[in-house]
Amino acid sequence: MRNVLISGAGVAGGTLAWFLAREGWAVTVVERAPAPRAGGQAIDVRGVALDVVDRLGLGDRMRAVRTRMRGMSMVDGDGQELFRSEDHTFSSGRLDSDDIELLRDDVVAMLLEASDVEYVFGDSITALTEEAHGVRVEFEHGGFRTFDLVIGADGLHSVVRRLAFGPEEEFTRHLGQYLAIFPAPNFLGLEDWQVWFRHENVGGAVYPVRDNTELRVTLGFGSDPLPRHDVEGQKRLIAERLGGLGWEVPKLLEAMAAADVFYFDAMAQVHLDRWSTGRIALVGDAGYCASALSGQGTSLALVGAYVLAQELGRASHEEAFAAYERRMRPFVALNQALATENPQGPASEESVERAKNAISLA
């Protein structure tokens, strides 16, 4: 039986694990976090990616827990309403669409539950050595194992990409923004309604989840690339950049200070000339991150994992990796363009519709 190591237990890694196991592979997933990652924003499953979740057998479950937004408001830094809509939201587009918006942690939990594979949490890859018939993998907590293939599904800051392709700085393009995401109690009393706010180059969004019992908060600011900070330093950066705003922002910053679950990163894209080398390949954000600004990162992860597994079920890894790239590159290019088409807001509906269906799963 062929065996494969997948680095990263997120959407791309969990999806790939499920489909490869169905193809008869022995699958191991290694994840540096000690447990499935909590928190994160509401994510979108759109277009052809809906077919992927149905093929996973998870479509009905995902639709059952989708967000149920009635609309959105946009306010300025003082809380004055600029406009409102009951037809669409910035995060999910048109509210009458078949697309699904749901929480990232719900998707990851479903994939973990559905996959009958080996998951190793709290460990990470430290070295990759290609041998005649496999890849020798060394781990942070000691020991090594040999796998037929290694797949990096470990996100924007991929360890597999760094070890097999080179330094992160060679492949990432900063998009001029930073975002923080964290949960908070619903002290605003929002009911299925998003509120977005903006003042000059700072802003964010607040929306209720979990039957309106919890908020997911996004805070961001425009900036050139910044040095890396620890979590407390990241929170200080956000507080400094947004500290002068009115409305409910002071309360949001207080909630951020108390948040145990907290995500912060630059909005960036990954561009590589190739997504594989030898027996090692990349999928999802590790290979072609489009950034949260595209609204298509989850769909790219789902579709990329499905196409890669499909091709590995048809041919040798050399042929499969080449076919995977041929099929995915036009789809990736259109979806990455969504993040740069309109830097001040969401891409046009026409661009989104074209991008989200620009690949065949046949």
Rank of each mutant, 00 (worst) to 15 (best):
L282N: 05
L111F: 04
A239H: 11
Y263S: 03
N335E: 10
R145I: 00
G233D: 13
Y263A: 07
L302S: 01
K251N: 12
I238P: 01
V30M: 04
N186D: 10
L334S: 12
P185C: 04
V11F: 03
Q41F: 05
F187E: 14
W247V: 05
D123M: 03
E325G: 01
I6R: 01
R198D: 11
P330S: 11
L361S: 09
A164R: 01
G304A: 07
S7Q: 06
L179I: 15
L175Y: 10
L188W: 12
E214R: 13
G246R: 09
E214Q: 11
P183K: 07
A355C: 03
P185K: 08
E341N: 07
M328H: 13
I125G: 01
L175P: 05
E169N: 07
I43M: 04
N201V: 12
D192C: 01
P167G: 12
G143H: 00
E254L: 08
D154L: 02
H229K: 15
F121A: 09
V307F: 08
D51N: 14
S91H: 15
A339F: 01
F171N: 04
E350N: 12
G278Q: 00
P208N: 08
S85C: 11
E200Y: 10
R173D: 13
L300H: 09
G24P: 09
G284S: 02
G47I: 05
S299P: 05
N342P: 05
T213I: 06
I43V: 14
L56R: 02
G313W: 02
T213V: 06
R55E: 08
H157G: 09
W25Y: 14
Q344L: 13
E113M: 13
P250T: 10
P225G: 08
G57C: 08
T28Y: 02
R354E: 15
G57F: 05
T67F: 06
A257E: 14
G204H: 04
R37N: 04
T340A: 10
E191Q: 13
M1F: 02
A26V: 08
R326W: 11
S91M: 15
Q177C: 12
W193G: 08
R326Q: 14
G57I: 04
G142P: 11
W247G: 03
N3I: 00
P36Y: 04
P330W: 15
F221G: 03
A127W: 08
V120S: 07
V352M: 12
L245W: 10
V160G: 02
G59A: 10
P185I: 08
R70P: 06
A38F: 05
E325K: 10
F331C: 11
W275I: 02
H174L: 10
P343C: 09
